[in-house]
């Protein structure tokens, strides 16, 4: 993890450095972004909404599992791990 974990410790205020929307996998550990849309269907969509992942919710990537997948995110005060397949279908934007 190296640099990534350093950034977590420092609680970086650095936001996603892009103007256009990207997916959640593009948010590196230590970065924050705003959720813009969830392109998932069914129960996974429900579950993400239930934990409060609605439009304009702030999400921060905290780190990745030792194998690089899944990643842990801070969502409304809780730490939730989400697999890369699902992350790619969550659109986010710079804060």
């Amino acid at each position: 993890m190296g640099m990534g974990s350093f950034l977590i410790l420092k609680y970086s205020e650095r936001a996603v450095d892009m103007n256009k929307c990207v997916n959640l996998m593009d948010v590196s550990p230590g970065q924050r972004a705003l959720v813009k849309g969830i392109e998932l269907k069914g129960s996974m969509r429900r579950r993400l909404l239930d934990i409060g992942l609605i439009e304009n919710t702030e999400i921060e990537c905290l780190g990745r599992s030792p194998c690089g997948d899944p990643s842990a995110y801070l969502i409304r005060g809780a730490v939730i791990a989400i697999r890369s397949e699902e992350c790619r279908r969550i659109r986010v934007c710079a804060r």
């Binding site: 993890m1 190296g2 974990s5 977590i8 410790l9 609680y11 780190g63 730490v79």
Partner: peptide, 11 residues
């Protein structure tokens, strides 16, 4: 917690 996680779940 974050610090612990960066060790216990770190690469």
């Amino acid at each position: 917690d974050r610090r612990l996680d960066s060790i216990l779940t770190g690469r």
